[in-house]
Write a protein that binds this DNA or RNA. Structure first.
Lengths: 222, 222
DNA sequence: CAAGGCTTAATTGTCGACAATATAGTCATT
DNA sequence: AATGACTATATTGTCGACAATTAAGCCTTG
């Protein structure tokens, strides 16, 4: 499972990735201020490096900057999560549609293999599925769209934010077996080269997840 | 018609906006290299400012950077334009759906007024419609979605790229009266608070535009 | 006591210089 | 003559210092 192939070369790259990790994990808490001087001493790099890293974090929508004031980590709100899932439904639906058109037969076969592996894991009752498995599944379909813009928006922009919500709001809910069936049907549609159905099923799949999260948010009263 | 309210405050802001304008208009030609030292003398600012501006241009997908090598303006390809319109169909479709749910009655009334103004303009045969009018129409619906992520991706990210294609490939095609009817039906669906129809109509509308562009691309043999 | 302006401290924005890396050209070698 | 290593040059990456702006605290004043 080779997820991202983003290889940091410059010092700003490493700092960016490190900061992103710390923000996603909540080591740097949501809503907190990012002081450039403080971070530069903490991460042992110059302020220029920190500034570049913060700029990239802003591109990911993980921080917000105001001129002459500074940068803050985004706040996590239930509303924001719902908005995120609306965008996700739209884009991943299109990704599934395009994947049904553009994935190679070999890639589809690999996707089926992945699903079978998941099935074994789900049977044994491990929670592996929800964690990396789900991400991997969606990730492959996104790449399968072969649309560089789509890929960039989702992978570079939205996914880290979703992970941030997942980690910090502790979302590893149930929905395992049902989600598995949904995945299976999506892959079937892609295998049948049925773009419309693939899109519909993917959108529903994400809607279900969104609804599941929404009720969870209500009970947690966020 | 107050389009963007992005007010440049810092020097990097102004340089970014200026550079973006020059890239969109082709003053800085597509595919060309962006030399930091050259630009810093040309725009009479320090390299740090240029670097920050280039970073933001990268966020807009207007330039691409490689570590230790530099930044280049993106190349315009027919394939890229089609990919862009796929993303646009997806996101603006969702925007129309959300607009039907979230726009206030007053905003919808304003949208109707805008359409009537356009009707007058189209009747007189001016080309105004395709230029700013079309942009304004879509822009209002995007804002009407009330989804900040959606708005950010489209307004900050995708629209400038589309404008770049429009300007540099000279796309001001026909499709005026038909597009007007399509706009009318979309607004009707929004007025009726019919999210599903609004999305379908918006997606078709963009598909038509995409197809129109595609045939144009073939004849222009890009 | 509240409101407004001033001063001061801290933070961000900008700059020029230096270090590290990549590209192009040259020279030697097979 | 072609290939490879090496050098030189130019470009990007990084740094520390200075300038500009903001926010806070204090003081003054109505």
């Amino acid at each position: 499972m080779t997820l991202l192939t983003e290889q940091p070369v410059t010092s700003a790259d490493k700092t960016f990735i490190q900061l992103r990790k710390d923000i996603v994990k909540g080591v740097i808490s949501a809503g907190s201020k990012l002081s450039e001087t403080e971070l530069s001493t903490k991460y042992a790099v110059s302020r220029a490096v920190i500034r570049e890293a913060i700029n990239r974090l802003e591109s990911c929508h993980l921080v917000e900057r105001k001129a002459n004031v500074g940068a803050r980590v985004v706040a996590l709100t239930g509303e924001g999560l719902m908005e995120l899932y609306q965008v996700r439904e739209s884009l991943e639906g299109m990704a599934a549609r395009l994947a049904a058109m553009n994935m190679s037969d070999e890639e589809i076969a690999d996707l089926n293999d992945l699903l079978n592996t998941h099935f074994q894991t789900v049977k044994t009752g491990e929670t592996y599925y929800q964690e990396a498995g789900d991400v991997d599944f969606h990730y492959r379909i996104i790449l399968g769209s072969k649309n560089s813009h789509l890929i960039s928006i989702l992978v570079d922009g939205i996914y880290h934010l979703i992970r941030m919500y997942r980690v910090q709001l502790g979302m590893a809910g149930p929905r395992v077996t049902r989600a598995f069936d949904e995945h299976k049907h999506i892959v079937q549609a892609i295998s049948n080269r049925d773009p419309e159905l693939a899109e519909i099923l993917m959108r529903r799949h994400i809607q279900y997840t969104k609804n599941s999260l929404e009720t969870k948010l209500v009970t947690d009263s966020l």
